Amino acid sequence: AITFRFEGQEKAKKFYEKLMRQNLEATIHIHGDEVHVTVH
């Protein structure tokens, strides 16, 4: 698994949606202002 870190939720959401379109499995974790997107 690879984890990407984002400042702010907007960028993270766009990235997450892009992964979903590519049929990749990903989970999102929100830590205050920092958002972690883990790709499995």
Rank of each mutant, 00 (worst) to 15 (best):
Q9N: 09
I28H: 01
A26T: 04
K18F: 15
A26R: 02
A12P: 00
L19C: 11
V37M: 03
T38F: 09
Y16R: 03
T3H: 05
I30M: 08
V37Y: 02
R21E: 09
N23Y: 07
H29N: 07
F15P: 00
K13I: 14
E10H: 06
T3G: 02
K13Q: 14
Q22N: 09
N23C: 05
E25R: 15
K14V: 10
T3I: 14
K13E: 10
T38L: 10
F15E: 01
Q9G: 07
T27A: 05
R21Y: 06
M20E: 03
A26N: 01
Y16F: 11
M20H: 04
L19S: 01
T3M: 07
V37E: 00
L19F: 03
V39F: 14
K11S: 13
F4M: 03
E10A: 09
G32M: 06
E7C: 15
H36S: 08
H36V: 12
V35D: 00
Y16T: 03
E25G: 08
A26D: 01
I2S: 04
T27H: 07
E17A: 11
H31M: 12
H31A: 08
H40D: 04
V39M: 09
G8D: 15
E25H: 15
L19M: 09
M20R: 12
N23D: 06
R5F: 12
G32Q: 06
L24Q: 05
A12N: 01
H31S: 10
H40V: 09
D33G: 08
N23W: 08
A12R: 00
V39N: 02
R5S: 07
L19N: 00
Y16W: 10
R21Q: 11
I30H: 07
E25D: 12
K14Y: 09
E25M: 14
K14T: 08
R21D: 05
K18S: 12
Q22R: 11
H36Q: 05
E34Y: 13
T27L: 05
K11G: 10
F15G: 00
V39I: 13
H29F: 12
Q9M: 15
E7R: 14
I30A: 07
L24T: 05
I30P: 04
Q22E: 08
Q9Y: 15
E25Y: 15
H40F: 14
V35F: 11
G8Y: 08
E7L: 14
R21I: 07
F4V: 04
K11T: 12
M20G: 03
F15Y: 04
K18A: 13
E25S: 14
E10F: 07
H36A: 04
Q22G: 05
E7Y: 14
F15W: 04
R5Q: 05
R21C: 05
V37T: 00
H29D: 06
V39E: 02
V35G: 02
H31Q: 11
K13T: 09
Q22H: 10
T27E: 08
K18I: 11
G8M: 10
L24I: 15
G8P: 02
T3D: 02
H29E: 13
F4A: 02
K18W: 15
I28Q: 01
F15N: 01
I2V: 10
A26M: 07
H40T: 09
H36C: 08
H29G: 04
Q22A: 12
F6Q: 01
V39H: 03
E17R: 10
N23G: 15
E25I: 15
